[in-house]
Each structure stands twice: as C-alpha cells, then as structure tokens.
C-alpha cells in the first residue's frame, strides 16, 4: 500500500519493488555476498599461493594470505619465458582466428536461414537441428580427424573442431528474423545486393548477438585443452591450458618416481611457479570475462548456453 505511488510499481516496469531496507534484505545480501565470495575463493587461493615463498608454502601449506610474500615464482617464469610465450602465441592465435572464422561462418549460415524466401530454409535448418540430437561422440570424431583429415599434430587440429556451434546458429537465426522486414525491402528498392544487405544492414543490427556469440567462442578456444590432449604431441603446438595440464601431470609422475626412490633428471617448475602459470593462463580470460560480462548475462537470456 505504501509503495503504491512508486514508479517501479507501474505495470510493464519489471522491477521488484521491495526497496525497503529491512532485516530480511540484509540477511539476503549477506548470504548472496557470501556465495559470491565462495565462487571467488578458489581463484584467490591460486593467486595468493603464486605470490608465496616456495619454502614457506611447503611448510605452512596453501593459504589465502601468503605466509611469506614472494614474486620468485613469476621471476622464474619470466627468466625462461620461451615455453610459456610459445603457448601464449598458439592460444592467442587459435582464439583470434577461430573466433573470427567461427562467427563469420555462423552469421553467414544464420542469415539465409532467417529469410522466408530461401527455398532451402527448412531442409538446412533441419540439418543444423539434427546435429544437436545425435552426437556421435569422441570415437568417430577421433577417427575422422586422425585417419581421414590427417590433421593430428597440426594447428588445424586445434582450430577446426569448435567453429560452428549449431546452437549459436539457431539463436542468431532467431535474432535475424526479428529484424524489421521494411529495412531489407527498402535496401532492395535502392538496388542493394544480398551481400551488401548482409554486411551493411543485418550484421550491424545484430551486433549485440554477434558479440555475445563471439565471446562464447573465444572463451571456448581459450579454455580448450581436450583437443590438444587428443591430437597434439609436439610441444611446439601446446596451447596454454594443455601446457598447464602437462606440467601438472609431469609433476605428478615425478612425485611418484621420488616415492619409489628414483631421482628425476628433469627440473620441473616448483609448486608456486605452477600456480603462477595458472594465474598467467587465466588472467586474459578473466579480463575478457569482466569486460564483457554484460554480454554474458545477456547470453543467458538469449539462451546462448546449452
């Protein structure tokens, strides 16, 4: 009753109007803030341990506040940067090229599928749909890549697999169909060809949806380690995340050797250096995430997640 005059109680304005500052609201805020911190905690733990002195870490264990602050781990990495720089180059390269290629291919497929006059609209749409229902899985895909396309151990193995997500095609198709028809008709009357209409009208208008999809594809490429696990053996082609995995599993193998009394010949990054690597590998993705988070939240409403 008290709130009846407030603007946010108007129909059509979909904002919860409970702005009263009561005890329950405070409790909810505390609970949600706690949850948010819980989501952040593991990441802070990794960052904190990367800035911890190696011996202090071995003695006191991991903690959210470095028991003895040190940048030694980062210095060690930057002293011999070749390996990580190489991995950075691979990851940045495939993320960049893969995102541009992927978004272009998806947009070029989605646009005709949104045109009512396109005679192949129904059969091609169904072809795209069907891929979402039946997933051949790892085995046929592995055989295709290694026996028929022969791309194992090449950069193409990292680039090819994630280009066209059927889900993104369908989202973008819906987005394109929502654009007003008059715009397209007017351009046609002015003598614009289909390519011009696509580039000058459809693409600029769909920019928010394209940005969201680009962001998803980019994060996908950046975080991909499975493709390298399946197809890449040559260290020159290790992407960042796979390099992290290799370092971790080598360290594990070394620890096992030590247990059975063999002495490893290889010098491996220390525990703090490994954590520093993880921070360096996650950093750019987190920045991307924070900068574009509004597109991500929009992605949820667009249904961009599977």
């Amino acid at each position: 009753m008290i709130e009846a005059g407030r603007s946010d109680a108007l129909p059509g304005v979909r904002m919860p109007s409970r702005r009263r500052f009561d005890a329950a609201t405070v409790v909810v805020h505390i609970a949600v803030a706690g949850l948010a911190l819980l989501c952040l905690f593991p990441l802070l733990l990794v960052v904190a341990s990367s800035f911890t002195d190696e011996i202090a870490l071995a003695r006191n264990g991991y903690s959210i506040i470095p028991s003895k602050f040190s940048v030694e781990a980062y210095l060690a990495i930057f002293n011999k940067p070749a390996v990580i720089l190489r991995a950075y180059a691979v990851t940045t390269g495939i993320t960049f090229v893969g995102t541009i290629l992927g978004v272009s291919m998806i947009a070029l497929l989605a646009y005709p599928l949104s045109r009512r006059d396109f005679i192949l609209r129904t059969p091609i749409s169904f072809m795209v749909f069907f891929t979402m229902l039946f997933n051949g899985g790892l085995v046929p895909y592995y055989i295709l890549m290694t026996q028929y396309l022969n791309v194992q151990n090449t950069i193409f193995a990292l680039l090819l697999p994630h280009l066209v997500g059927a889900y993104y095609v369908l989202i973008l198709r819906t987005y394109f169909s929502g654009l007003p028809d008059e715009l397209f008709e007017a351009a046609r009357v002015d003598g614009a060809g289909e390519w011009t209409i696509f580039w000058q009208i459809a693409v600029p208008l769909a920019r928010p949806a394209l940005a969201t999809i680009a962001l998803f594809i980019a994060l996908n490429y950046w975080n991909d380690w499975t493709t390298a696990l399946y197809f890449i053996r040559s260290p020159d082609l290790y992407p960042l995340q796979y390099l992290l995995y290799i370092i971790q599993s080598n360290a594990q193998a070394m620890a096992l050797q030590e247990q059975v009394g063999q002495i490893g010949t290889q010098k491996l990054p220390t525990e703090t250096a490994r954590m520093a690597m993880a921070v360096l590998a996650t950093g750019p993705a987190s920045v991307l995430f924070l900068f574009f988070q509004k597109y991500l939240v929009r992605g949820v409403t667009l249904g961009a997640f599977k």
């Binding site: 990441l43 733990l45 971790q248 987190s286 924070l290």
Partner: peptide, 29 residues
C-alpha cells in the same frame, strides 16, 4: 551475478590446480 557466473569460464585444468591447493595431502587448505 558476475561473480557467481565466473567459475563457468575457468578451464578445468585451472580448476584442478585449485582443487589440488584445497586437497593436497601435506599442504592443502
């Protein structure tokens, strides 16, 4: 919202690093 969505975009390799920081036998939290 941003913070709660963040974990979704951390690669599983990095997740395994911090799970290790939590669960390591001698040094884990």
């Amino acid at each position: 919202q941003t913070l709660i969505l963040l974990p979704r975009f951390i690669s599983w390799v990095v997740v395994s690093y911090f799970v290790y920081a939590l669960l390591a036998a001698d040094t884990g939290v």
